[in-house]
């Protein structure tokens, strides 16, 4: 009996459910084509559509809706020269409480953009109490790449008063241009981490977010425009800076909806400066 339990425990501790989605885009005659779609496991993508003509809009779906222990999600996007791509998700990503073995839940996003334009604007990720989340986003830009990336990250569910009392979460963002690192960020929080309440840490806030932009013709001018937007709307939950030609907007606050609204407003402001066309808000955001 003990042997059987041991075996079951062993099987459980080795549980590994990989899911994989790889999308490739290239420039067609009138519009960007999604010429490659490979998947394994429950990751899917809807048929791409073209609300603004040339740009290929894609919704990523993960029907289970969240990650449990052993889940290992890999998403790869490759944007070939001349392509224009916008990717979002229809619902928040969730990292559920891990099982009793505390097996990690992993998500890795790899984005490669070569002389093309990519907007990675997923919905927020909610990390539930007890989760063991490992989330990383690697962005490799080459040549004249233009890129927007938005990430919002909620610890526990603030509205339902679920704190983050056990588990741990690590979140990484790495952005390279022509193989030189331009932005490397890493956050790690263990259960009841003093960093959550620390004034120089999360200052008691459970929602954080980042919008990064690369490929702006005049990033300093873009920073100034955002500053005036921020002043007008008195957004004390946002900060803007630009270093190594990467514009970084950070959000720290209490509400994921507010984070999305504010960071998307910045994206809308920056989009015309990036490529001369106004932002085309994905319809799914309005629902």
């Amino acid at each position: 009996m003990t042997e059987l339990t041991d075996q079951l425990n062993k099987a459980e501790s080795q549980r590994h459910w990989p899911a994989f989605l790889s999308l490739g885009f290239d420039k067609g005659e009138a519009k960007t084509r999604m010429h490659r779609m490979q998947f394994l496991g429950p990751l899917r993508v809807q048929r791409p559509f073209y609300p603004e003509g040339e740009v290929c809009h894609v919704y990523l779906l993960h029907p289970p809706g969240g990650l449990v222990s052993g889940d290992d999600l890999n998403i790869q996007l490759t944007c070939e020269p001349g392509s224009k791509v916008l990717v979002t998700t229809p619902s928040a990503g969730k990292i559920y409480r891990a099982d009793s073995n505390g097996i990690a839940q992993k998500q890795r996003v790899d984005i490669e953009v070569t002389d093309s334009q990519c907007e990675w604007l997923p919905m927020e990720t909610i990390v539930f109490d007890g989760a063991h989340g490992r989330l990383s986003t690697h962005i490799n830009l080459y040549g004249q790449a233009q890129f927007f990336g938005l990430d919002v990250f909620c610890l526990g569910r603030p509205k339902s008063n679920l704190p983050f009392a056990s588990g741990s979460v690590e979140q990484r963002l790495a952005l390279y241009h022509d193989d030189v690192p331009l932005l490397l960020e890493r956050q790690f929080l263990a259960a009841d981490d003093p960093l959550i309440s620390a004034i120089s840490g999360f200052n008691g806030n459970l929602v954080s977010g980042t919008l990064v932009a690369f490929g702006l013709a005049d990033p300093e001018q873009a920073v100034e425009q955002l500053h005036s937007l921020l002043q007008q709307q008195a957004m004390t939950t946002l900060s803007v800076t630009c270093r190594l030609n990467v514009l970084v907007v950070r959000y720290l606050g209490a509400c994921s909806e507010q984070a999305q609204t504010q960071l998307r407003a910045c994206w809308q402001q920056l989009r015309p400066l990036m490529n001369g066309t106004p932002a085309c808000v994905p319809r799914i955001w309005n629902t």
Binding site: E185, G201, R250
Partner: peptide
């Protein structure tokens, strides 16, 4: 390697 403190980074910005 590396650790970003959000409020510190925002204060600096």
């Amino acid at each position: 390697i590396g650790m970003t403190l959000p409020a510190f980074a925002m204060a600096s910005a």
